[in-house]
Design a protein around this nucleic acid. Structure first.
Lengths: 146, 146
DNA sequence: TGACAATAGTACTATATACAACTATTCTAT
DNA sequence: ATAGAATAGTTGTATATAGTACTATTGTCA
């Protein structure tokens, strides 16, 4: 079989882009958000009012990581823990109004990042690429679920 | 502009696959190799006798991370630091015979991982996907170099 | 209906990784 | 020929993230 190194390259991209991203955040004076928190917010902006367990799946972060990061985001006032009546084991995470400024700045950085990422790509290529990524992610998720 | 989340998914894949990979390593009783060390060896298997700086680029790990991981890999006997005469700032990293057993086992796990990753992919799709990855990695590297 | 399994979240602790500051060496431009 | 810039690597310290063990709650099936 041919030598495949997709995973190797993905790790490298993750690490390199993480460093670039956090430098960009600093340039925008966003100092109180780390990568994990960014991912949490990003997931919540798409849909909030969800339990921690679901957030863990959407961000691919560990539960224990979630707990800590949510603590901090709650302290900063970006979100709330809400206790539903139907199942008192669960906790729902709700965004507050507070995070809207953050969202705007953060998304600006994301756009810059995306431009850098996909420099020289045509839209159709990006579409195709991201479809591949989804397929891989699903493969891994299925494996985890077993 | 359309919402792009390539970076977001890549981070998730990185994290998820990291966890799966390290569990697999455990199953094969490879306990003394962490992700960074795996990446270092993987890079060295392709070409050794290179300075640390170059390894940093090839693995996208930080210099200081390299120092520490190389210490451990040297302790375990998987590699040597060699001091060239022409430039005494440099140190070359050389593999020892010792790591061959490790290499075989590690590559077996890699193959399993790759199968999982690319489940349902045709060879041509993998080729295309990995080309995209390389392009993105190069975009980021260029940006770093500036 | 009650014992035991499953699920949700948290706390403790260990590990992975990086940044910034440092030493040693080499390059460069006058 | 030498002062200052650049490069290679290391060390001290800070942060990110996860695994495991724990508590509380809910589901299940004899």
């Amino acid at each position: 079989m041919k030598l495949r190194q997709g995973g190797f390259i993905i790790s490298k991209i993750h690490q390199l882009s993480g460093r670039i991203f956090s430098r960009k955040l600093k340039d925008y004076n966003i100092n109180d958000i780390n990568p994990a928190q960014g991912r949490i917010l990003f997931a919540l902006w798409q849909k909030d009012n969800i339990p921690i367990q679901e957030l863990a799946k959407k961000t691919a972060l560990g539960k224990s990581t979630l707990t800590r990061m949510l603590d901090k985001l709650e302290e900063t006032g970006f979100l709330l823990r809400v206790f539903p009546n139907d199942d008192r084991r669960k906790i729902l995470i709700q965004l507050t109004e507070e995070n809207k400024k953050m969202k705007i700045a953060y998304e600006q950085v994301s756009v810059e990042m995306t431009k850098l990422y996909y420099k020289g790509f045509q839209d159709s290529e990006i579409d195709e690429f991201e479809k591949y990524l989804e397929r891989i992610f699903n493969n891994l998720k299925e494996h985890e679920a077993e």
